[in-house]
Every structure is written in C-alpha cells, then in structure tokens.
C-alpha cells in the first residue's frame, strides 16, 4: 500500500524536519514576508500545537509542513521525504499514504454521505475493504447511526467527527489539524478535541495542530509560538506558567 516508503525512515529520524524555512508572497508594490527562517523538528508520535494570533503565519506554516504549498526558501522533510523538493503530484502521493487532515471548516464533500466521505481517502490510497474500515471508524467516532447522512444533515460537531474519522482512515503517520474546534461551541469543541486526542493516542500518530485556543494547545506535548512569521518554543517553565 505504501508506495512512498523511505528506506532511510526509521524510528530514530524525526517525523518532520524543517530547516531555514521562509515564505514570501509578492504584492503589487513589494513583497510580504509571512515566515522567516523557521527551524523545527518534530519526533514520531509527538503532539505539537502551533499557537499564534490571526495573521501570525501559522496556517501558512501548516500548509508548508503538510506539503500543500512550497516554501520560498528552506526545506521540509516529512517522514524522510524532502517534500519541499517534490513535485505537486509526488507530494499528493505522499499525502495519500502518510498524511491526514482536520480542518476548521470540516471540508466534507457535500454531495457524499458521511460513509462515502470517510471511504474517499481509503479508495484514493487503494486500500482493501474501504467500506468496512470507514464503518468502523464512524462507529468509533459515535456516528454509526448516521452513515448515510450527507454533511448538510449533520451538525457542526458531527461534521467534524466525520472529518476526524476521515483523517484517521488511512492510519496516517502524521495528522495536521487546522483550528479543529474553531467553528464549534465550547462543549462540542471539547468533545471533538477529546476524540482527536484519543484517536491520536490509539494510533500513535504524530499530531501537528494549529490553534489560537490555549486550552487545546495545552493538551499537546509541545507548544510552539509563532509571531510575525518567527517560531519560538517556550521553555518548560514558561509553558507551565
């Protein structure tokens, strides 16, 4: 199933290694620097929260880490593959086999049922019995009764649970989550984050989460702060305080 197996990848190498990462976008008159000289390593099985205010560059960083975009400078190595140097199609292959996503706005395909939304990545990755696996996952997230409902027929919290089931469907090596509770009320957000954390633990997935919610961030093993495109990691004391 895994066509992108990197022979160099072993449990000693970090899941993500970022070196000298910068990202700039040209504007009409000058250039806007969004990220500047980011260096970062994330180990396998680690859960990391990237916290920052709106416009600090956290979503851009997430996109670059996940290979959704390519940096202006620097390198991103994911599970041993230098994704910042891969073509868009190679990056897509890598995502199909090793990366899962949870988005703030759920990003479910409106025309597909909950079951079909979860089956989609399994089929794209060419896995056997996608139907069975998708059912199991939906039952795991508590939606066993809502398999055939379309996103429109589900509440926000339910939609995000479908999205979480989809994200874990292919047992990704790394899961990227972008403000996963940003569109949910406190209580639902809490339930969704519980689920996310639980599945993450169960599957031993590396979790990289972008959020401005300090409580959610605190549930991750590491918290990184981003401000004006620069990443910093507070010391253990700082993060406790």
């Amino acid at each position: 199933m895994n066509q992108m197996t990197n022979p160099n990848a072993d449990h000693c190498t970090p899941m993500l290694r970022v070196a000298g990462l910068s990202h700039r976008v040209p504007l009409e008159t000058d250039t806007l620097t969004i990220l500047q000289g980011v260096n970062l390593e994330i180990n396998r099985g680690e859960s990391v929260a990237i916290v920052g205010r709106s416009g600090s560059g956290k979503t851009t960083l997430l996109g670059l880490l996940a290979g959704l975009d390519t940096p202006s400078e620097g390198t991103v190595e994911l599970d041993g593959a230098m994704i910042s140097q891969l073509s868009e199609d190679k990056r897509a292959e890598l995502r199909a086999s090793r990366v899962g996503f949870v988005f703030q706005s759920f990003q479910l395909l409106p025309a597909l049922s909950a079951l079909e939304n979860v089956m989609l990545p399994l089929e794209l990755a060419g896995m056997d019995n996608p139907d069975k696996r998708a059912r199991e996952l939906l039952e795991r997230v508590g939606l066993g009764e809502r398999l055939n409902h379309t996103p429109r027929q589900l509440s926000g919290g339910e939609q995000q649970r479908v999205a979480i089931a989809r994200a874990f469907a292919c047992e990704p090596a790394v899961l990227f989550a972008d403000e996963p509770t940003g569109n949910l009320d406190n209580r639902t957000g809490q339930a969704v984050s519980d689920l996310l954390m639980a599945l993450n633990r169960e599957q031993g997935t590396t979790l990289v989460m972008v959020t401005h919610d300090e409580h959610l961030a605190a549930r991750c093993a590491r918290q990184l702060h981003i401000e004006a495109g620069q990443l910093s990691e507070p010391t253990a004391e700082e993060s406790v305080s």
């Binding site: 868009e88 897509a92 995502r95 199909a96 996503f101 395909l109 989609l120 794209l124």
Partner: peptide, 16 residues
Amino acid sequence: RDTVALLKTLGLSGPG
C-alpha cells in the same frame, strides 16, 4: 475548486 483542493489534499494527483 474547493472539492479539487480537498481531493488534492487527500492525495489525488493532477493527472488523477
């Protein structure tokens, strides 16, 4: 466009 972006995120390539 949103669907395509999502499919790409889920790993579908350009030719796909």
